[in-house]
Design a protein around this nucleic acid. Structure first.
Length: 980
RNA sequence: GCCCAGAUGGCGGAAUUGGUAUACGCGCCAGUCUUAGGAACUGGUUCCCGCAAGGGAUUGGAGGUUCGAGUCCUCUUCUGGGCACCA
C-alpha cells in the first residue's frame, strides 16, 4: 500500500512554519537529562544593523547538524545562542542613526533572532544571553574584580595605541599593520592611564596547553596563537659603559659597583664574539643618563625626538632604511673578549621589547648586517655552519670507512669532491677523528690521496693550514650515496677546480639526517655540479655572509676563544652559565604578546568597577554593589581628551568611597568589546543564577565545550582572551577544566557570487530571508553544507541552492513509492547502499565532511528513485539520515509515515558491517599499469580466478599477443595488472 | 622576508593502505512535452584525433621511486591566509 496517493507537492513554506511552531511548543530542544552530554557552541554574533547575510549561518548550520546527530545518538545536547552587543560598532551605529545604543541593540537583536529562527536551529532560547544585560555584565565585572584582587588587573601609564578617529585606546590585538582594525586610521602612541590585564603571566600556560592531547584544535589556529605569544628564550647581558674619563683597560670587563652598564637582550649569546657594536632604542634611559658624556648630544637628541614623533606605522614603513646615531665619547665593553665597541641609538631597536638594547652582531643578524654595512662597521664572523661535534664526526667516519673499504675491495676510484679529499688528507695528518683511528694507514694510500688533491687543483697543501672545522654534506637515496665534504680552511689557496670525478655507487650506507641548512647547501652544491658551472662561493659556506647576507642560523663557533668549536646550542648554555657565575647576565624569557590594554574611552561598554579615592587610592567596588550599571545618558559622543564620556556625568561619577566613605570618583573607562565574550559559554550553562557566576554542579556537567565553531579571524583575540580568562577562573576555582574548548573548527567564508567579499559596498549581499522564502530553510541548510569543504572560502551560487531544493523535492516525492504492510524487501544492492550511507553520513558529520555526507545522500536518493517501490524501513533510514541537514522536511515525512513522535526522539540508525561490502565488483584489468578492460566479477574472487578471467579477455589477448608475461599483480576486489 | 594551507573538467568539488581520476551538484548540449519562453522529465557531457569502432593525453610545472602515483620523494611556479625591525 502506498503511503500517499501522489498529488502532494513539496511545499517548504508551510512545512517549515508548521514545524517551527510545534518544536517551540513541545520544547524538544531542552536538556533531556541523559547520561551522555554534548555541548555545541557557536561564536555568538555581534548584532549589527545590517542583519545576517547568507555567510553568517554556515557555522550555525554545522553545529546544528552535529547537535541533531548527537541528539539522535542519545546525548543531552546543549546548543545555545546569545548576543555580543557591547563595543564600538554598536555605538558607532547608534551615533550615526541617532538612537541610543541600547535601543539600537534591542532592535538589531530582534532582527537577528527573527532571521535565525527561520533556520529551525536546536537553540534553547531560554538560555539566551546578552552581554549588555546588567545581570550578565555583573559577572564580567565580578571577574575583573577578582583579577584586581589577584594583582592581574593593574593601572599603567605606559604609552598606548590611540585611534584618533574612534577616540579610544586599543590593544595590540586590535591593530592591523599599525592601523585601527575598525576604521583603518593610523594609530598614534599616547601616554594615558589605562587598565591592563596581566596576560603575560599566563603566556607559558597559554602556549604549552596548546600541545595538550585533549585539545582537538586545527593546527592553523594553534600556530597563529603560538606566533602571537611569540615566546623567546634568551639572556640579558650587561655591557659595561666606558667613557673617555677612564682609560679603557682591555680585559677588564668586570663590573664594579659604581660602573655604568647597559643591559642587552639576546637569544644568540653564541654569536657574542661577533658583536661589533651595541644599540639602544631612542627611548632608552641611558641616553639621558649619559647626556653629559655624549660628545654629540645635540645630534643624538635630534634623532631621538625625530624618531619619537614617528608613528608606529612610519617606523615600520621605513624599515628598509635603517638609521641611527653613534654616541660619541661612549664605548661599551664586550664582557666575553673585553673589546671596546661603539654604542649607537637607532630606532630599529624597539623600546618596549626585551631591555630596549641589543648587542649587534652583523655577521649573524640581518638587521645588524644592514646597519653595519650602511655605517661601515666591522663585520666579524663567529659562527660557521660546519659540523664538527663529536657524534657527527663519528657518523661521517662511518661513511668514510665504507668508502675506503669499498675502494680496497673493489678497487674503486672514489668520487670525491675537494672537501672530502681535504678532509682525508687532514685526517691522515691528524690520524684521528674524535677518538677513532682513521682507516687510512699506509704511506701508499697517503700518497694516493695527496695525488688526488693535486689532481683536483689544490696548488699548495701545507700541513698546518687545516683547521679542525669542516663542513660536510651528505646526500642519500636508496641506492646511492654521495658524500661531499668541505673543509673550513684558513689561508689555503684554491686552484682551478673544474674537476669532476667518477661517480660510483656505494650500497648499504646509513642514512644521516642532517640539519635543514646542510641539506639546502647540499642541493645547491649538487645543482652546481650538474651544470658544471660551479659557484666557488658556495663551497665554503662560511663566506655566505659576504654575499650580502648574514648567516643567522645555528652552527659552530669560530673566532670565539675557548668557546670555538662548540655547537651554537652548547655554546649558549655554557656561555650563559659563565655570565651567571660572573653576575653579568642572566637567563630571560620574552614574549611578543603584551599585557592586554583593557580600558576604552567610550560609552558603550561594561563600566570598570573601581572607585578612586584621594585617601584610599584605587578601591574596588564591593561585590554586593555589583553590577555597576552603565548610566542612561543623552549624549555619549567620544572625546579627544582621553577620557570616557562617562566622566561628564557627575551624579554617576561622584560616589562615596566604599572604604572610608569620603568623596570618591568612579572609574569612567569602560571595558573593551572582547570582555563579555571571554566567558559567555559558561553563562549559557546557568544563565539565571544571581548568586554565582555558574553553579559548580552544572559547570561540571557541561564543561568543557565539546565543539566550538567560528571564524578563523578570532584566533588571536577572542580565542586567546577566552583561554586566558578561563585559566584564571580555573585558578580561583570557579571552573573545573583548564581549557574551555575541546574541539575547535573554523568555518570558511561565503563570498558573493562574483567572488568578492559580501558587502553593502559592492551591492552583492544575499539575504537569507529571501533565499528561505524562495527555496526554504532546508534547501539553504543542505546547500551550505554541500557547497564545499567546510573550512574553505567558497562563493555563493544561487543555482546551487536550486540543486539542493531539487534534491529535497525528489526525496519528498519518493514518499509516493513507499510500500508498507508487505514483506517487501529492497534488493541486496540497495540494502548495501543504505548500510554504506549510514556509515558514511555518520562518520562524515563527525569529521566535518558535510559535503560528502550530502553527496552520499544524493546518491542514495537517486538510486531509490530508480526503484518501483521502496520498503518503508529503507525510506525511514533515509529520512533519519537526512534529518540533521533538513530537519523540517524530515519531520514532515516522518509524520506522513504515520509517526506521532518527533523524528528527533528516534535513534540514529546503525549499519551492519557485513552489509557494506559489495557482492559484485568491476574487475579492472591493466596491462603495464594501463586500464585495458573491465569485467564483472564476484568480490571474493581468488587470484587464480582473476588471472584466468583476465587472460580470457579478447581485448587483453590482443594486446598481449605472444609477448611474455613478466609479472602478474592481483589486488583483491579491485584489479589485475599484467606486466609484459 | 618568515610560518601555515592549497593548486584536480566550463564552475564548486569527490577519490580508504599508492590500485578504475573526474563521484555528487551546477552549467552546457540533445530529446520529450509546450503556441512560444520557462519549468519538468529522459539521455549525454575531462580534453584532443576519428563518421565510427577505437586511440592518445590529463590532477599547476620539471624530475624520481614503483608493476602501478592526484596520493610518496626532490626541485619549481602560482594562489590564499597569518606574522612582520620581537634581537
Amino acid at each position: 500500500m502506498a503511503i500517499s496517493n501522489g498529488a502532494s507537492k513539496y511545499d517548504p513554506k508551510n512545512i517549515e512554519e508548521k514545524w517551527k511552531k510545534r518544536w517551540e511548543e513541545s520544547g524538544i530542544y531542552k536538556d533531556y537529562g541523559r547520561e551522555k552530554k554534548f555541548y555545541a557552541l557557536d561564536m555568538f554574533p555581534y548584532p549589527s544593523g545590517e542583519g545576517l547575510h547568507v555567510g553568517h549561518p554556515k557555522g550555525y548550520i554545522a553545529t546544528d547538524v552535529v547537535s541533531r546527530l548527537k541528539l539522535l545518538q542519545g546525548y543531552s545536547v546543549l546548543h545555545p545562542m546569545g548576543w555580543d552587543a557591547f563595543g564600538l560598532p554598536a555605538e558607532n551605529y547608534a551615533l550615526k542613526n541617532k538612537v541610543h545604543p541600547r535601543i539600537a541593540v534591542e532592535k538589531n537583536i530582534a532582527t537577528f533572532k527573527k532571521q535565525l529562527k527561520l533556520f529551525g536551529f536546536t537553540y534553547d532560547w531560554d538560555r539566551e544571553i546578552n552581554t549588555t544585560d546588567p545581570d550578565y555584565y555583573k559577572w564580567t565585572q565580578w571577574i575583573f574584580l577578582k583579577m584586581f584582587e589577584k594583582g592581574l588587573a593593574y593601572e599603567s601609564e605606559e604609552p598606548v595605541n590611540w585611534c584618533p578617529k574612534c577616540k579610544t585606546v586599543l590593544a595590540n590585538e586590535d591593530l592591523e599593520n599599525g592601523k585601527c582594525e575598525r576604521c583603518g586610521s593610523e594609530v598614534i602612541q599616547r601616554k594615558l592611564r589605562q587598565w591592563v590585564l596581566k596576560m603575560t603571566e599566563y603566556a607559558d600556560r597559554l602556549l604549552y596547553d596548546l600541545e595538550s592531547e585533549d585539545l582537538d584544535w586545527e593546527e592553523l589556529i594553534k600556530e597563529q596563537q603560538r606566533n602571537w605569544i611569540g615566546r623567546s628564550e634568551g639572556v640579558i647581558v650587561k655591557f659595561k659603559v666606558q667613557n673617555s674619563k677612564f682609560k679603557a683597560t682591555v680585559k677588564n670587563s668586570k663590573l664594579e659597583n659604581d660602573d655604568e652598564y647597559i643591559e642587552t637582550y639576546t637569544t644568540r649569546l653564541d654569536t657574542i664574539f661577533g658583536c661589533t657594536y651595541c644599540v639602544v632604542a631612542p627611548e632608552h634611559p641611558i641616553v639621558q643618563k649619559l647626556k653629559d658624556k655624549i660628545e654629540n648630544y645635540s645630534e643624538v637628541e635630534k634623532y631621538v625626538i625625530k624618531s619619537q614623533s614617528k608613528t608606529e606605522l612610519e617606523r615600520m614603513e621605513l624599515q628598509k632604511e635603517k638609521t641611527g646615531v653613534k654616541l660619541r665619547g661612549i664605548k661599551v665593553i664586550n664582557p666575553f673578549n673585553g673589546k671596546e665597541i661603539p654604542l649607537f641609538v637607532a630606532d630599529y631597536v624597539l623600546g618596549f621589547y626585551g631591555t630596549g638594547a641589543v648587542m649587534a652582531v652583523p655577521a649573524h643578524d640581518e638587521r645588524d648586517f644592514e646597519f653595519a654595512k650602511k655605517y661601515g662597521l666591522p663585520i666579524v664572523q663567529s659562527i660557521t655552519p660546519s659540523m664538527d661535534d663529536y657524534e657527527q664526526s663519528l657518523k661521517v667516519l662511518e661513511v668514510l670507512k665504507k668508502i675506503h673499504e669499498g675502494a680496497k675491495k673493489r678497487d674503486l676510484q672514489f668520487w670525491l669532491s675537494s672537501g672530502l679529499a681535504c678532509m682525508f688528507y687532514a685526517k691522515i695528518i691528524y690520524r684521528k677523528i674524535g677518538d677513532i683511528d682513521i682507516v687510512v694507514k699506509n704511506k701508499e694510500e697517503q700518497a694516493k690521496f695527496a695525488k688526488y688533491l693535486e689532481e683536483m687543483g689544490f696548488k699548495k697543501i701545507k700541513e698546518k693550514v687545516f683547521s679542525e672545522k669542516y663542513v660536510n654534506f651528505i646526500f642519500q637515496d636508496k641506492n646511492k650515496i654521495e658524500v661531499d665534504l668541505g673543509v673550513y680552511l684558513e689561508g689555503l689557496e684554491l686552484g682551478e677546480r673544474g674537476f669532476r670525478q667518477r661517480e660510483k655507487e656505494l650500497n648499504g650506507c646509513k642514512t644521516f639526517v642532517l640539519s635543514k641548512h646542510f641539506n639546502e647547501e647540499l642541493k645547491e652544491s649538487l645543482s652546481h655540479d650538474k651544470s658544471n658551472g660551479r659557484d666557488k662561493s658556495k663551497d665554503i659556506a662560511d663566506l655566505k655572509y659576504l654575499e650580502g647576507r648574514a648567516y643567522a642560523e645555528d652552527g659552530y663557533l669560530v673566532n670565539s676563544e675557548k668557546y670555538s668549536g662548540l655547537s651554537s646550542e652548547k655554546a649558549r648554555k655554557k656561555m650563559a652559565l659563565w655570565l651567571e657565575k660572573e653576575k653579568i647576565g642572566k637567563k630571560k624569557v620574552n614574549y611578543k604578546m603584551r599585557d592586554w590594554v583593557f580600558s576604552r574611552q567610550r560609552y558603550w561598554g561594561e563600566p570598570v568597577p573601581i572607585i578612586h579615592c584621594k585617601k584610599c587610592g584605587t578601591v574596588p567596588v564591593p561585590e554586593k554593589d555589583l553590577p555597576v550599571i552603565l548610566p542612561e545618558v543623552k549624549s555619549y559622543e567620544p572625546t579627544d581628551t582621553g577620557e570616557s564620556p562617562l566622566a561628564k556625568i557627575s551624579n554617576w561619577v561622584n560616589v562615596s568611597c566604599p572604604k572610608c566613605s569620603g568623596p570618591g570618583k568612579r572609574e569612567t573607562n569602560t571595558m573593551p568589546q572582547w570582555a563579555g565574550s571571554c566567558w559567555y559559554y559558561l553563562r549559557y550553562i546557568d544563565p539565571q543564577n544571581d548568586e554565582v557566576l555558574i553553579d559548580k554542579q552544572k559547570e561540571k556537567k557541561w564543561m568543557p565545550v565539546d565543539l566550538y565553531v567560528g571564524g578563523a579571524e578570532h584566533a588571536t583575540r577572542h580565542l586567546l582572551y577566552a583561554r586566558f580568562w578561563h585559566k584564571f577562573l580555573y585558578d580561583i576555582g570557579a571552573v573545573s577544566t583548564e581549557e574551555p574548548f575541546k574541539k575547535l573548527v573554523h568555518v570558511g567564508l561565503i563570498q558573493a557570487e562574483d567572488g568578492r567579499k559580501m558587502s553593502k559596498r559592492w551591492g552583492n549581499v544575499i539575504n537569507p530571508d529571501d533565499v528561505i522564502s524562495k527555496f526554504g530553510a532546508d534547501a539553504m541548510r543542505v546547500y551550505e553544507m554541500f557547497m564545499g569543504p567546510f573550512a574553505q572560502n567558497i562563493a555563493w551560487s544561487t543555482n546551487g541552492v536550486i540543486g539542493a531544493y531539487k534534491f529535497l523535492e525528489k526525496t519528498y516525492k519518493l514518499a509516493d513509492k513507499v510500500q508498507t504492510g508487505s514483506e517487501l524487501k529492497a534488493n541486496k544492492k540497495t540494502e548495501i547502499l543504505i548500510n554504506k550511507t549510514i556509515k558514511k553520513v555518520g562518520e562524515d558529520i563527525e569529521n566535518f565532511r558535510f559535503n560528502t555526507a550530502v553527496s552520499q545522500l544524493m546518491i542514495l536518493v537517486n538510486e531509490l528513485d530508480k526503484e518501483e517501490s521502496i520498503p518503508i524501513a529503507n525510506y525511514q533510514s533515509l529520512i533519519t539520515l537526512l534529518s540533521p541537514f533538513a530537519p523540517f522536511i524530515a519531520e514532515e515525512l516522518w509524520e506522513k509515515l504515520g509517526h506521532k513522535e518527533s523524528i528527533f526522539k528516534e535513534k540514529w540508525p546503525e549499519y551492519d558491517p557485513k552489509m557494506i561490502k559489495d557482492e559484485e565488483i568491476e574487475l579492472v584489468i591493466q596491462v603495464n599499469g594501463k586500464v585495458r578492460d573491465k569485467m564483472k566479477a564476484s568480490a571474493d574472487l581468488s587470484e587464480e580466478e582473476g588471472k584466468k578471467l583476465a587472460l580470457e579477455s579478447e581485448k587483453i589477448k590482443n594486446i598481449i599477443g605472444d609477448k611474455e608475461i613478466k609479472k602478474f599483480i592481483y589486488v583483491e576486489g579491485r584489479l589485475v595488472n599484467i606486466v609484459i
